[in-house]
Amino acid sequence: DVEPGKFYKGVVTRIEKYGAFINLNEQVRGLLRPRDMISLRLENLNVGDEIIVQAIDVRPEKREIDFKYIP
């Protein structure tokens, strides 16, 4: 289970104008929005990159997770 405030290693699987989709595993995916990136820009991410993200909002009923990147 993903818990708000905890850090997780994930893989960038898709990049859109509104953010990057990060997979923690095959069943768990969330969104990293540009506003939640500190010292990292969306255009510097590539599909396949491994990054450490912090879960900031977890909505299991909608199967949605918002992430934050903190270097």
Rank of each mutant, 00 (worst) to 15 (best):
L31N: 01
E50G: 11
G48H: 06
L32D: 01
G5M: 09
E61S: 12
I51V: 09
T13V: 11
R41V: 11
L24F: 03
L24A: 02
E43P: 06
L45W: 02
G10M: 04
V53A: 03
N25S: 15
Y18C: 04
I52M: 11
E16K: 10
Y18K: 06
K6Q: 12
V28L: 15
R41N: 10
T13G: 07
I15A: 00
P71Q: 08
D66R: 14
R63Y: 13
E3S: 12
Q27V: 12
V58Q: 04
G5E: 05
F67R: 01
F7T: 07
R14P: 00
N44H: 15
I70W: 14
L24G: 01
E43C: 09
L32Y: 02
D1I: 13
V28E: 07
I22Y: 01
I22D: 00
I22A: 00
F67D: 01
P34N: 07
V2L: 09
K9P: 06
K6V: 09
I65W: 09
R59L: 04
K6D: 04
V47E: 08
G19T: 02
Q54W: 12
I38G: 15
R35A: 12
F21D: 02
F7V: 06
N46S: 15
E50Y: 15
Q54E: 07
G48C: 06
G48T: 04
E26G: 11
P34I: 12
P71S: 10
L31T: 04
P4E: 12
L45V: 07
I52F: 10
D57T: 12
I38W: 11
R14G: 08
I15Y: 01
D57F: 12
I51H: 01
R63G: 15
M37I: 06
L31R: 04
P34S: 11
L45Y: 02
L31I: 09
K17V: 14
I52K: 06
G10S: 02
V12L: 03
F21G: 01
Y69F: 12
V58N: 06
A55Y: 03
L40D: 04
N23L: 09
R63W: 11
V2I: 15
N44Q: 15
Q27I: 12
I56L: 14
P60F: 09
K62C: 08
G30Y: 02
E64A: 07
E61C: 06
P71V: 07
L40Y: 06
G5L: 09
E26N: 14
V12G: 00
P71L: 06
Q54P: 00
D49H: 05
E26V: 13
G30M: 03
I52S: 06
Y18A: 06
N44E: 15
V2T: 05
K17E: 12
I38D: 10
L31A: 02
D36M: 07
R14F: 07
R41K: 15
V28R: 06
K68S: 13
K9L: 13
L45S: 01
E16L: 12
D1A: 14
G30P: 01
G5T: 05
R35C: 06
D49L: 08
F67H: 01
E16G: 09
E26K: 15
D66A: 09
K17P: 15
P60K: 11
R14N: 06
Y18M: 06
R63N: 15
F21L: 10
M37C: 04
E50V: 15
V2H: 04
E43G: 11
S39A: 14
Y18T: 05
D36F: 07
N46C: 11
I15N: 00
Y8H: 02
A20T: 03
V58I: 11
R35Y: 09
A55D: 00
E64I: 11
P71G: 12
L31P: 01
I38T: 13
D36H: 13
D57R: 15
Y8C: 02
V11E: 05
I70D: 15
K17M: 11
I51Y: 02
Q27S: 14
N23D: 12
Y8S: 00
V12C: 03
E43D: 13
M37Q: 03
Y8W: 02
I22N: 00
L42W: 05
I51Q: 00
K6T: 08
D49Q: 11
S39T: 14
K9F: 11
V11S: 07
G10W: 13
K68G: 14
R29E: 10
E3W: 11
E43M: 09
L40R: 04
R33D: 02
N23P: 00
P4F: 10
E26S: 14
Y18R: 06
Y18F: 13
N23W: 10
V47W: 06
R29V: 13
I70M: 13
R63M: 14
K17A: 13
P34M: 08
L40G: 06
D49N: 06
E61F: 08
I70T: 12
I15E: 00
M37P: 02
L40W: 05
F7A: 06
D49K: 05
E64K: 08
L24E: 00
K17R: 14
V11D: 02
E3Q: 13
K9H: 12
V12M: 01
V2R: 02
I56S: 07
R59N: 08
I70S: 12
K6E: 09
E43Q: 11
D57K: 14
V58E: 03
D1K: 14
E61R: 05
A55C: 12
S39G: 15
V53Q: 00
E61I: 10
R59M: 04
V11M: 11
P60S: 11
R59V: 05
R35Q: 12
R14E: 06
V12Y: 01
I70P: 04
R59F: 05
E61P: 07
G19H: 03
N23I: 08
R29M: 12
V47R: 06
R33F: 03
V53G: 00
G30V: 03
G10Y: 01
E16V: 14
I15F: 02
V2M: 07
L32C: 02
I22V: 12
R59E: 04
K62N: 10
L42R: 03
I15P: 00
S39F: 10
L31Y: 05
I15R: 04
R41D: 09
D66T: 11
S39W: 11
Q54N: 04
L32E: 01
I15K: 08
